[in-house]
Simulated assay, not measured.
Amino acid sequence: MQTTSTNICERMGRSQELSEFKRGTVIGCHLCNKSIREISLLLNIPQSPVSGIITKWKQLGTTATQPGSEQGQRMLKRTVHKSHQLPAESVAKDLQKLMWPSD
Rank of each mutant, 00 (worst) to 15 (best):
T3M: 06
T4A: 09
S5K: 14
T6K: 06
T6V: 10
N7L: 15
E10N: 09
E10G: 04
R11Y: 12
M12S: 03
G13V: 05
G13P: 03
R14L: 11
S15E: 13
Q16A: 10
E17K: 11
E17G: 06
L18W: 15
L18N: 06
L18R: 11
S19C: 09
V26R: 05
V26E: 05
V26N: 02
C29V: 03
H30Q: 08
L31Q: 13
L31H: 10
L31P: 02
L31Y: 05
L31N: 12
C32G: 04
C32M: 11
N33W: 07
N33M: 13
K34T: 00
K34P: 00
S35D: 08
S35L: 11
I36P: 00
I36S: 05
R37P: 05
E38W: 00
E38D: 15
E38S: 14
I39V: 15
S40N: 05
L41R: 10
L41K: 13
L42M: 14
L42Q: 13
L42E: 15
L43M: 06
N44L: 04
N44F: 02
N44S: 12
Q47G: 09
Q47M: 11
S48R: 14
S48Y: 06
S48E: 09
V50F: 02
V50D: 09
V50R: 02
G52H: 07
G52A: 07
I53R: 01
I53C: 05
I53T: 07
I54D: 12
I54E: 05
T55A: 11
K56Y: 01
K56P: 00
W57A: 12
K58E: 12
K58V: 07
Q59R: 13
Q59L: 15
Q59F: 12
G61M: 03
T63K: 03
T63D: 10
P67N: 00
P67D: 00
G68E: 13
G68Q: 06
G68M: 09
S69Q: 12
S69T: 15
S69W: 03
S69Y: 11
E70Q: 14
G72F: 01
Q73P: 00
Q73T: 06
Q73K: 05
R74P: 00
M75R: 02
M75Y: 14
K77C: 15
R78Q: 11
T79W: 15
T79I: 15
T79P: 01
T79C: 10
T79K: 08
V80H: 10
H81W: 04
H81A: 12
H81P: 00
H81C: 06
K82Y: 09
K82H: 08
K82S: 13
K82M: 12
S83F: 08
Q85S: 13
L86S: 11
A88W: 08
S90R: 08
S90H: 09
V91S: 03
V91G: 01
V91A: 01
V91P: 01
V91L: 06
A92T: 14
A92G: 03
K93H: 06
K93Q: 10
D94G: 05
D94E: 08
D94N: 04
L95P: 01
Q96T: 10
Q96W: 14
L98D: 07
L98N: 05
M99R: 13
W100K: 06
W100Y: 10
P101L: 00
D103C: 03
D103S: 11
